[in-house]
Write a protein that binds this DNA or RNA. Structure first.
Length: 949
DNA sequence: GTAGGGTTAG
């Protein structure tokens, strides 16, 4: 093929440079000779400037005998397209229009359509296409391609319809673009139709077509169909086929499959390309696959793909997701030409790893080095500010986005709103919300959940109603966030309303159903939670976790633990959230065996004992009575956060080690952790249970004055409990009457309990009437009040209180105790005969009681029987208390030397306390009892509570 | 002769 020389020595020299000084004209002979390469060679080199110059020469030279032909235009249009040089392309277009030398207008128009498409100007492409005198297949293909590259897949599909209507035959080149369009809009049915057409036209032997079909099915989430096509290529696969199928598996999260196919590819002898490594590196993004990452990295190096931008960026992302930011930074440092994606990958890596300060530093470095942050950089940074609650940094970023005109960007606006919501500033969130010119469903969802999370449920609901006013489409995300708002309102009827909407519109998926389970649970409607759960056809780990935590939150820990084997039956793997709810169920029940099993599972599966896992483990061990193991977990936790310190402090408190709790609290302060309300609550609780009155007062004081925290009602309750137990009843009463807020029922309850123990009738009377006035529907309160009267032998008053209670239809929770033996809980209520080994248990109990009377001088203290009965009957009642049955069973089933662990739902009575102390001495048996309030360690006749509980 | 397939940050 002859290439026309458009420039060269035979053309007159021209001064094209205007930079030279006018006074010093460079003589023609001084000018460097024009590049002797032909236009084609210049174009192949990609030198647009040079190509343009040489073409321009041909236009302006007066003595040129011929005008540039179609081919010259074509070459330079291709170059413009490749370099996305729109303005140069437009200049050529102008010349084409002016020039009368074009032979084949259809050919050149097709080229123009192509060029405009590639340069991102769909408008011009369409204009040229529409004005064409006639269309051939090349023109159609160019126009369809232009639509696809300009993210107008629907336009491409419309053109396809038009072609079909005109009965215009498609060729093999039409298919890839069309299939890409189907993939972009996830239009599987059109994709299948086009697949059928490709079969009919016999294009399935074309690798381009098949590879496009593989990609289409993968993007439409039908990976099996993609694999079927791939596997039928039998020897016709090229590197793109392999890349497509590996991408399909990687994107659908089937890592093992993706890696298996990659291995097969290597075995088949197909050399991977840079396109191969991007999805393969993605499969290594799981932190647990650190070893694999290094292996794949080695292959990248071996095959020399370590200079490719895509590969390098993917490596950065992979190491960041592997929690190996140092490695990521090393790769990043060595990237010669860092693009925005590289910078942003690093930035999001820091954020995802919780390294917010590093992210801030990196961001400022980015600006110093002249790298301009874009929307995505801002999104990462705003997420960091939101998650770390750094309002100041968030506002600075807001200012930056205003200055750089990015605040109107949808993505930036949404993230700004989220940041303000997370920093507790719904007012600023609202400001951004109203300023955003374009809102999408994420915007609305963010507003709703922002209000919900900040305890503005009504605002959340109003925003939800506004969606209907604005005629926005309601999507599943919105449903999810409005449901969470309902759970903050604890309003079951509202949840039912939304649930009804979900059912009517058919707008639900697994996520929504799981949310419903959780939200019904939060609203204390466990029946509905169960019903929704039962109706979920294919339950996943989240379904089970939602159900378990609903059970736990509603005091049904047993039912929660019953779900664990059902998860195993369904082959559902436990994740860390599931483990958290299992651990808290185990803690509730003192189910040490289950708890230990979970701890083992965590260690075996390489979970880090940190964060919520650590504090849940501390809770579980302390609630199961093993304080030592709580401390071991606490001590081994590397990054101790506030919750884990708080868990350990309340563990000490529960077990009566008040001083240890206070010491730990001080140690926490000295390590610069700022205690919150909950931390103060645990230390006050510890003081109260160990009679550390002065310490408790000091702590309460520092909470208000040093840390500027306003006490919650719970803190007041703790203080009253502490003063009352220590027999400072007058002071406790004064404290209640001078509180900054109206005392809640629990405060009077604590005071009344103290009055009972210390026999103060005057204050007790006041507390009792206040308690029943404030919380008249709680059967426990009536029981407490009647017990106070019973202790003073005021049997008429007892009868009156009990009949009021009966009249209200209130029933007291029966006392029960349980013990874990084997893999089972054995639950006893008083005088329970339902246990299969009831006879043995009662015989054993009689033996113990006799021994204690004989050797330990045990005398039943019938004053603890709060019924007006004969003395003999009272003794009989005491003897049948549930904890004694549980202890007897424990003694029957436990090897000598192993402590017996009992849990009781109410407080231990005084006589049982004595009974247990004596048992620990005369039967040489360590007994650990967890009652409703705290732990009692009985050993050698002494209880850890110092008879103070 | 023109037109076509597989990748990275959120």
């Amino acid at each position: 093929m002859a290439t026309l020389r458009l420039s060269g020595p035979h053309l007159p020299f021209r001064l094209t440079s205007t930079t030279s000084s006018k006074t010093h004209k460079i003589p023609p002979f001084m000018k460097p000779p024009i590049n002797p390469f032909s236009l084609k060679e210049i174009c192949q080199e990609g030198n647009l400037r040079e190509a343009f110059k040489s073409l321009a020469n041909t236009f302006t030279s007066q003595n040129l005998s011929h005008k540039p032909p179609d081919e010259a235009y074509s070459l330079i249009l291709d170059l413009c397209a490749a370099q996305k040089a729109l303005s140069q392309g437009q200049q050529i277009h102008a010349h084409v229009l002016k020039s009368n030398s074009v032979n084949d207008t259809v050919f050149l128009d097709t080229k123009l359509v192509f060029m405009y498409g590639k340069c991102g100007s769909l408008f011009h492409a369409e204009k040229v296409f529409d004005d064409m005198p006639e269309w051939n297949i090349f023109a159609w293909n160019a126009m369809i391609g232009a639509c696809v590259t300009n993210e107008e897949p629907l336009g491409a599909l419309e053109l396809y319809e038009e072609m079909r209507m005109l009965d215009f035959p498609l060729d093999a080149h039409t298919f890839p673009s069309l299939l890409k369009a189907c993939a972009a809009v996830k239009d599987l049915s059109s994709g299948c139709e086009i697949h059928g057409l490709a079969i009919k036209l016999g294009f399935l032997s074309n690798a381009f077509v098949v590879n496009s079909l593989v990609g289409m099915y993968a993007k439409c989430d039908d990976v099996p169909a993609a694999y079927r096509l791939f596997s039928r290529m039998s020897g016709k696969e090229d590197v793109v086929s392999w890349n497509s199928i590996i991408s399909a598996y990687a994107a659908s999260g089937r890592r093992t499959e993706a890696l298996r196919i990659f291995g097969e590819m290597l075995n088949t002898g197909v050399t991977p390309s840079t396109y191969t490594f991007v999805p393969v590196l993605q499969t290594c993004e799981e932190p647990a696959l650190g070893k694999l990452s290094s292996g794949v990295h080695a292959i990248v190096l071996k095959l020399g793909h370590h200079l490719d931008t895509y590969v390098l960026n993917s490596l950065v992302v992979m190491y960041a997701r592997n929690n190996r930011m140092d490695e990521a930074a090393r790769i990043f440092r060595d990237i010669k030409e860092k693009d925005n994606i590289a910078w942003n990958s690093m930035l999001s890596g820091y954020v995802q790893n919780g390294l917010y300060d590093e992210a801030l530093y990196f961001f400022s470095e980015m600006k110093t080095l002249g790298q301009k942050p874009d929307q995505i950089s801002l999104v990462s940074m705003l997420a960091a500010s939101g998650r770390s609650g750094n309002l100041l940094a968030g506002m600075q970023l807001h200012a930056f986005s205003l200055k750089n005109r990015m605040d109107c960007d949808l993505l930036v606006g949404n993230t700004l709103m989220d940041m303000y919501a997370k920093c507790g500033r719904t007012d600023y969130m609202q400001f951004v919300f109203y300023r955003m010119p374009y809102k999408d469903s994420v915007t609305w969802t963010t507003a709703i959940s922002g209000y919900a999370q900040n305890n503005f449920p009504t605002k959340a609901l109003n925003t939800f109603r506004e969606i209907f006013v604005e005629n926005m489409e309601v999507d599943l995300l919105m449903i999810g966030s409005i449901l969470l708002a309902c759970s903050d309102l604890k309003c079951s009827s509202l949840v039912k309303e939304i649930h009804g909407y979900v059912i009517r519109t058919g707008l639900h998926d697994l996520v929504t159903e799981n949310t419903l389970v959780k939200v019904y649970g939060d609203c204390r409607n466990i029946t509905y939670a169960c019903n929704v759960f039962k109706l979920i056809r294919v339950k996943n780990v989240v379904s089970f976790t939602s159900m378990m935590s609903s059970y736990v939150d509603n005091g049904l820990a047993n039912e929660a633990l019953d779900l664990v084997p059902r998860m195993q039956e369904n082959e559902i793997e436990l994740d860390f959230v599931a483990i958290l709810s299992i651990l808290s169920a185990a803690a509730d029940l003192s189910a040490l065996r289950k708890g230990k099993e979970m701890h083992g599972f965590l260690l075996r599966n390489g979970f880090l004992v940190e964060g919520p896992i650590a504090s849940c483990l501390v809770d579980m061990y302390s609630c199961s009575g093993i304080l030592d193991d709580s401390y071991k977990v606490f001590n081994c936790t590397l990054n101790k956060d506030l919750p884990v310190w708080t868990s350990m402090i309340s563990a000490y408190g529960m077990h009566g080690f008040g001083k240890a709790a206070v010491d730990l609290f001080r140690r926490m302060e000295s390590e610069n952790l700022i205690p919150d309300h909950v931390a103060f609550l645990s230390v006050l609780y510890a003081c109260s249970h160990s009679a550390l009155v002065e310490e408790g007062k000091r702590v309460f004081d520092s909470m208000q004055h040093e840390y500027k925290l306003d006490p919650w009602p719970e803190h007041y309750t703790c203080m009253v409990d502490m003063l009352g137990r220590a027999n400072y009843l007058e002071e406790a009463f004064r404290f209640v009457t001078t509180m900054k807020m109206e005392p809640i029922a629990a405060v009077w309850c604590a005071l009344l309990g103290a009055c009972r123990v210390h026999s103060n009738e005057k204050i007790g009377e006041i507390a009792a009437s206040k308690l029943l006035e404030l919380d008249p529907d709680n059967p426990g309160n009536y029981v407490l009040v009647s017990n106070v009267y019973a202790a003073r032998d005021r049997w008429e008053d007892v009868e009156e209180v009990r009949s009021t209670m009966k009249g209200k239809g209130l029933k007291k929770d029966p006392a029960c105790s349980w013990i874990e033996v084997g893999n089972k809980f054995h639950v006893f209520i008083a005088h329970d005969r339902s246990h299969p080994e009831s006879d043995e248990i009662n015989q054993k109990l009689d033996l113990i009681t006799e021994k204690l009377v004989r050797e330990g001088g045990y005398v039943p203290q019938t004053k603890y029987v709060l019924h007006d009965l004969e003395e003999k009957e009272k003794v009989k009642l005491l003897n049948g208390h549930s904890e004694r049955l549980a202890i007897s069973y424990g003694l029957l089933k436990t090897a000598y030397g192993t402590p017996i662990r009992i849990t009781k739902n109410l407080r231990v009575c005084g006589d049982c306390h004595t009974f247990t102390k004596l048992t620990s001495k005369y039967l040489e048996q360590e007994i650990i009892v967890r009652d409703a309030n705290r732990f009692h360690h009985f050993r050698d006749g002494i209880c850890s509570c110092g008879d103070f509980w």
